[in-house]
Amino acid sequence: MKTFHPILIIEDDADDCELIESALDSIGVKNERKCFNNGQDALEYLQTTDEKTFLILSDVNMPVLNGLKLKEIINTNDKLRTQSIPFVFLSTSNSKKDINAAYDLLAQGFFTKPNSFGDLIDLLKNVTNYWETARHPIS
Rank of each mutant, 00 (worst) to 15 (best):
Glu132Pro: 06
Asp104Asn: 15
Asp15His: 06
Asn31Ile: 01
Leu80Tyr: 07
Ile27Val: 13
Thr48Lys: 13
Cys17Gln: 13
Pro137Ser: 03
Asp78Lys: 04
Ser91Met: 02
Tyr45Asn: 09
Asn66Tyr: 04
Leu43His: 10
Trp131Glu: 07
Val88Arg: 01
Phe87Thr: 03
Leu46Gly: 10
Ala101Gln: 12
Ala134Pro: 08
Ile73His: 02
Glu11Gly: 06
Lys125Ser: 15
Asp98Phe: 11
Arg135Leu: 10
Ala107Gly: 12
Lys79Tyr: 13
Ile10Cys: 02
Lys34Met: 14
Arg81His: 06
Asp98Gly: 08
Leu106His: 14
Ile7His: 00
Ala42Trp: 14
Glu51Ala: 11
Pro114Ser: 14
Asp78Ala: 03
Thr128Ala: 07
Lys69Ala: 02
Met1Tyr: 08
Ile121Phe: 05
Lys2Leu: 15
Ala107Val: 03
Ser84Phe: 05
Ser93Ala: 06
Asn66Trp: 06
Thr112Ala: 14
Leu55Val: 13
Ile121Met: 09
Leu124Asp: 11
Ile20Val: 12
Pro86Cys: 01
Ser93Ile: 04
Val29Lys: 09
Lys2Thr: 14
Lys2Arg: 09
Thr82Pro: 00
Phe110Gln: 11
Asn77Met: 01
Val127Leu: 09
Glu11Trp: 00
Thr48Pro: 02
Leu124Tyr: 15
Thr82Tyr: 07
Ala14Ile: 12
Leu68Cys: 07
Asp16Pro: 00
Thr53Pro: 00
Gly109His: 13
Ser95Lys: 04
Val127Asn: 05
Ile121Arg: 12
Ile27Arg: 03
Thr133Lys: 01
Leu105His: 09
Asp50Lys: 14
Phe54Gly: 11
Gly39Cys: 06
Pro137Cys: 07
Ile10Ala: 03
Leu123Ala: 11
Glu32Gln: 15
Ala107Asn: 10
Leu105Arg: 14
Ala134Arg: 02
Phe89Ile: 06
Val64Asn: 14
Ala107Pro: 09
Glu72Gly: 03
Ile74Tyr: 05
Gln108Pro: 06
Lys2His: 09
Gly109Glu: 14
Ala101Lys: 13
Asn94Gly: 10
Glu72Asp: 05
Leu8Met: 01
Ser84Asp: 12
Ser93Gly: 04
Glu132Ala: 12
Thr76Pro: 00
Lys96Phe: 05
Ile85Gln: 02
Leu68Ser: 08
Lys69Ser: 06
Pro114Cys: 13
Ser139Asn: 10
Ala107Ser: 14
Lys71Leu: 15
Leu120Asp: 13
Pro6Val: 07
Gly118Ile: 15
Thr112His: 07
Thr92Leu: 07
Pro137Glu: 03
Phe89His: 05
Asn31Met: 07
